[in-house]
Design a protein around this nucleic acid. Structure first.
Lengths: 191, 191
DNA sequence: CCGAAGTGGAACACTAATGTTCCATTTCAG
DNA sequence: CTGAAATGGAACATTAGTGTTCCACTTCGG
């Protein structure tokens, strides 16, 4: 292996610590939206210096978390197979997939820098798939035509946020919060 | 008037600037959740020194904003007359009242320090009135019994958040966003 | 007109977070 | 075992925000 393949073939160790830092960053930021690099380093059982080695600036780390989040969202959207079944069924599956993320996606609401990047401005494939799905529901007659695609999108996300807040604030079991999300979504969308 | 009545009889000017700073703080924080005291002072057309005269520490200002917000929420809850009409009607009125706040209450989601105070932990009269209202709806048979009081509370707030996000992100007119909120809420709660 | 209240702004010290450098230590593959 | 890779930690400079002090300026009621 010739030297200089910096980004390509990282040693196993590097990949592992990089991942550890990333995970720790997510965990720390979920607990405290303004977590310090020192906090994150501690959470990752790593020196602050090491964090800087992998992510020279704070914004680099934030960007990485952001990218990681986007990837997971896209993956979950694919798993939900939005083309299968009726539109409400597909939306329900998507809701369940997203719910699995746990408080991970709470970050979108609590850490504003996270959404700042250009990647969040443009529509992702997942976004488009969701919007198309709602339109399909309109044609099928399985989704209330007043519930326009973008509103459904807002609704889905804020329902998930509600669900996890319900778990956190009121100590409700997760499965119960999920079923409240699903029921509320289904009823709101029903024609 | 004897000297030393510090907090009681403030001159008109003092009250006016205090209010100006408070309003500016709300506006600045809505625009940027991590607004600086300098930002706020500038927004209020006031020197930073003056801000410190009225609110010695940043937390004092935040507390004042928090109190102001709580007052308005309580006032809006009273105006909604939750005891009148059917439960869904009352909830709809409450939703409209809250919606009037504009992005003001977005602060609850974006400025975590704001909710940190002890005043937000304990249940306010407004909270209790809302929870009782939902129970009344259950007895009347006008609200789905699966929609437990605290969930309805979460739902109401996150719908409002969705509504204003819809306005901000998608440029939808306010009245339209409001009607989407009301419709979604009504359908989700319907038995 | 006068004096007190209210204000603005400059200057300062203090703190917390960030980013950098350097060196000693550990780890691990060959 | 040996050297390169990876890490931890101390020390440092820098920056941004905060809180304080002091003085000059305006304003406004009497």
């Amino acid at each position: 292996m010739s030297p200089g393949e910096s980004a390509v073939a990282e040693s196993g160790a590097r990949l592992r610590t990089r991942r550890a830092i990333l995970d720790a960053a997510v965990g720390a930021l979920v607990g405290n939206a303004s977590a310090t690099l020192a906090d994150i380093a501690a959470a990752a059982n790593v020196g602050r210096t090491t964090v800087h080695r992998y992510f020279p600036e704070r914004s680099d780390l934030i960007d990485a978390v952001s990218a990681h989040l986007l990837e997971r969202i896209e993956a979950a959207t694919e798993r939900a197979k939005l083309d299968a079944g009726t539109a409400p069924e597909a939306l329900s599956r998507l809701c369940q997939e997203f719910f699995e993320f746990g408080d991970l996606f709470t970050l979108c609401f609590t850490v504003p820098e996270l959404m700042a990047g250009p990647a969040w401005e443009e529509e992702t494939d997942g976004d488009r798939a969701l919007l198309r799905l709602v339109e399909r529901g309109h044609h099928e007659g399985t989704i209330d035509r007043e519930m326009e695609p973008r509103w459904v999108q807002q609704l889905l996300w804020s329902l998930l946020f509600s669900g996890w807040s319900h778990v956190r604030d009121n100590g409700v079991p997760k499965h119960h919060a999920l079923s409240l999300c699903l029921r509320s979504l289904a009823k709101a969308l029903a024609p």
